[in-house]
Design a protein around this nucleic acid. Sequence first.
DNA 1: TCAATAGCCTGGAATCGTTCCAAATTTAAT
DNA 2: ATTAAATTTGGAACGATTCCAGGCTATTGA
Lengths: 142, 142
Amino acid sequence: MIMTRDRTFTLAVDALKEAGLRPTRQRVQLLHLLRAGGNRHLSADDLAREAKKIGLSVSLATVYNALNQFTQSGLLREVVIAPGISYFDTNIGPHHHFYFEEERRLQDIPVDAVSVSDLPPAPMGTKVARVEVVIRLESEQK
Amino acid sequence: MIMTRDRTFTLAVDALKEAGLRPTRQRVQLLHLLRAGGNRHLSADDLAREAKKIGLSVSLATVYNALNQFTQSGLLREVVIAPGISYFDTNIGPHHHFYFEEERRLQDIPVDAVSVSDLPPAPMGTKVARVEVVIRLESEQK
DNA sequence: TCAATAGCCTGGAATCGTTCCAAATTTAAT
DNA sequence: ATTAAATTTGGAACGATTCCAGGCTATTGA
Ligand SMILES: [Mn+2]
Ligand SMILES: [Mn+2]
Ligand SMILES: [Zn+2]
Ligand SMILES: [Zn+2]
């Protein structure tokens, strides 16, 4: 199945080509699914489950492969919260996160809603890849 | 072996008692080891290996139990970097981190070396448990 | 001082998210 | 259409962490 002719998927196909990834059926469908529905934070398992729910035929290994490839190409970004808990973020612009511990849920914070200033310079021989701010929240009462 | 009489370990014993943890041989030795040598970031496996190297007899399960208990009691803090990569931090005061991707190493940044201001308020029903800033570094050349 | 009891430690099995593998399929180039 | 290279797949393997049940150990209070 060559997916370059289906109008529904042209955006996903183009994005994949630009990222240097072959627009295979699985990648196209997964990227399309990821991008439908605004900014999201989802685990590999979330995506696999969603894909299955709408009838896509994609193995879990391929979901992992695709998510990692998308992340490496800059189509996604990964946010790690705890050992065994990481989310793929469809919002690749600069921003920060609230993390609701109880709900295990991330929520975006616009980058200009937090000011991180006076960063120390990157140590010799290194450069800053990313500045991550995570505000961990717990429920108020107790 | 009751360790309350050994002068070498009084600090560790007292800290454990204050934290509401029984000062067992394993906990005392591990906490003592953790606190010898300044601020450190080490994995459970690092600590198990160090313990073995100096001749302590502690199982890996106990190292995990102790690290988790110490973290819950505020004697340590945990910093998660990637799925399967987390470090226990003997520096429990407020501070931030550089992370050297290649070396998989954390380095402290004094809290006053970074200014994080204008934080958005915690959403209704929640309160801020911690604000984490991680500056991810990659090597400069390539 | 010395049971009695609650808590702790341990090795090994189990869990769980993720990666690896090799065979079958699909894509892209000729 | 042919071919080579890349991709997908189910299942096995992996590695970090947790669980478990049986044997110790610290604490307490008689
Ligand atoms: Mn990953
Ligand atoms: Mn933990
Ligand atoms: Zn986000
Ligand atoms: Zn630190």
